[in-house]
């Protein structure tokens, strides 16, 4: 049992937790009756996805945050000319820094997830607005009561 944990769970613990959180969120979105609880479940689902992406970008214990400090990085002896790098090269001869990419965390998942969080809160706001309108219409936040009211209204006026 201990060996199983050490071999199969400990190195992948972030990924296990991402699956667990995602399933908690999915279960809440399907099975919870209250609309706000459903939205909290949806947010948990979203953070689980972000957890997966950020976990992919981690690079070992020695890795730093993805902010390159030009004053601590080593400079190469060669001077970069304009012809070497095409039009992106430094004019007038700048120094070239040797940045070792393995020392820094992977920035790409961070960028993708940063915008996802802000868009997530905007969509949460829209969802909460819809919830408020439903409450105004039906006077309740419980899904089964709303469905029962819709059914009653349908059976009361079958023509419409």
């Amino acid at each position: 049992m201990l060996e199983f944990i050490q071999d199969n769970i400990q190195p992948y613990f972030n990924y296990w937790v991402y699956v667990i959180l995602m399933m908690i969120g999915l279960w809440a979105t399907i099975a919870k009756n209250n609309l706000i609880k459903k939205l909290i479940g949806m947010s948990i689902f979203q953070t689980a996805i972000i957890l997966f992406y950020v976990s992919v970008g981690v690079k070992g214990e020695g890795s730093k945050i993805p902010i390159v400090n030009p004053y601590t990085e080593a400079k190469s002896a060669e001077v970069v000319g304009a012809d070497q790098h095409g039009e992106h090269g430094a004019k007038g001869g700048g120094e070239k820094y040797i940045v070792e990419p393995d020392n820094y965390a992977n920035p790409l998942p961070h960028v993708l997830m940063l915008t996802a969080i802000v868009v997530g809160v905007a969509t949460l706001g829209v969802a909460l607005a819809v919830v408020q309108m439903l409450f105004k219409e039906f006077g309740t936040l419980e899904e089964d009561e709303i469905l029962a009211q819709i059914k009653n209204a349908d059976s009361a006026s079958p023509d419409v």
């Binding site: 390159v68 990085e73 970069v80 700048g94 940045v99 990419p101 920035p107 790409l108």
Partner: peptide
């Protein structure tokens, strides 16, 4: 990986 290029080239 493209992220390696981002790290090495961005500052320059």
């Amino acid at each position: 990986a493209v992220s390696q290029d981002f790290l090495t080239e961005t500052y320059e």
